[in-house]
Computed example of a mutant assay.
Amino acid sequence: MSMRLRFALACAGVFFVIGTLAVTAVFFVARTTLQYRASVFTPQNAFWSTEPEDYELARSFGLAVHATYRTDVLDNLRNAGVLAVLGGTGLAFGAGWRTAGMVLIPLRNVTDTARRIVQNHDLSERIGYKGSRDEIKELTDSYDVMLDRLARSFDGQRRFVANASHELRTPLTINRTLVDVAVRRPDATEDVKRLGESLLLVNARHERLIDGLLALTEGERAVLDRRPFDLTDVAEHVLDQAAAEAAEREVTMHRLLDPAPTAGEAVLVERLVQNLVENAIRHNHPKGEVWVTTRRRADRVELVVANTGLQVPPYEIETIFEPFRRLHGDRLRSDRGSGLGLSIVRVITEAHGGTVTATPRDEGGLTITVELPVHAEGGSV
């Protein structure tokens, strides 16, 4: 029940109670006032005859006339009172509804602005309410202050992650070069080569972690430059690139790619599809399968990536999109990524105004569905 409806019902209820009490009070006062009194209705000194029989006859006639008159008056008062209360209650409801609508206009504007901020992921926008100094003004000012603090906090966090990632990438690149040179030296022993290969694997894992942090930071920003592209083209490109790894791991890939026009940052969406496909291949078993589907449904386009693999408990579904969370507690296998893949998928999807869901397959593995807004020809997302 909306606040406007509650206010209108409250106005109608208050009027109904007060009107009912008022009509009831008037009814009882009138009934008491109209009680028969002989001195008023049949005064003995007003009769032409002093005979007792004539007086009693007149008194009986007066009682009958008064009873009829009293009944009619009270019935009319009751009926008119009920109609007045019901009609006034309806008018009070209408007046309350209209008044609440006028009072809630500023609050509705605040709500629309807040909803737009959430949908666009744009913490730079402010409500900027210019009304008089009242409760709504205080609320909107507090909301703007909160947005300022959140924007500064998120910007600081993103800058820190980006700067730290860039600073860490340089020494890792140097380490990789030095280890690679040491391993390729003619006089390098087998122990040195094995150690070098292990160090290169660790170094590659750290590089993937840093790349994932950078992608996570970039994906959290709102996508302002939305350019149209077909999700099918992106999926085909990613699948062609992943074919070699899938063949190496003996994973069969099936593709059912129908046109799926959307708009946004194509590079980010490519990273999204790449993470899903890589997860489907790496979290699989030999002779496993991967199904990739793109399609359009009404005002949305869908990307569905399903794979075979280990059974996934339903209670772990909500945690797989959190950073550094891995299924089955696997934190040692560096070839399976850094645990940021699905987190990146989620932030990129939300930055494009979409949704991502995961469901476990009965046969094992996952089915992950990404929905993005459709881009109609000549229209907008």
Results as ranks from 00 to 15, higher is better:
F7L: 13
R325Y: 12
V17R: 10
Q241T: 15
G94Q: 02
I117K: 06
R78V: 05
E363I: 03
D72K: 11
V82P: 05
R255C: 05
H237E: 15
D362T: 15
T170N: 12
Q119R: 15
P52D: 08
S165E: 00
R226Y: 07
G19M: 03
L310T: 02
A162N: 07
E363W: 01
P106V: 06
L83N: 03
F47R: 10
P52E: 08
A351V: 00
H283A: 03
S142A: 13
R226S: 13
I174N: 04
E125K: 14
E135D: 09
R4F: 10
E248D: 13
R152I: 02
R70F: 03
A84W: 09
H328N: 01
S343D: 01
R361W: 02
A12Y: 04
T113A: 13
L224Q: 06
H121Q: 15
T232L: 03
E53I: 05
H206K: 12
E363K: 06
T20G: 11
G96C: 00
P313Q: 07
L83V: 12
V347D: 07
W48G: 14
T349L: 06
Q274S: 14
N45I: 03
P43L: 10
N275G: 03
A244E: 13
Q157E: 06
M102G: 09
F324M: 11
H206L: 14
S198E: 15
L256G: 04
E190L: 10
N307K: 01
L77M: 00
I127P: 03
K137N: 11
E265S: 15
C11S: 08
Y143Q: 03
F28L: 09
T232G: 10
T232N: 06
A38P: 04
T33C: 00
E363Y: 03
A30T: 12
T42H: 13
E250F: 03
F229E: 00
R59Y: 15
G309K: 07
V202R: 09
M3L: 14
I320M: 07
T355W: 04
E207Q: 12
A298G: 14
N275I: 02
L195I: 13
A12S: 04
V374I: 08
S124K: 11
F28A: 00
V65Q: 09
E316D: 14
P171T: 05
T357D: 15
A67S: 14
V17K: 11
R169F: 07
T308D: 05
L74Y: 08
N203T: 11
L272M: 01
V202M: 12
G354S: 05
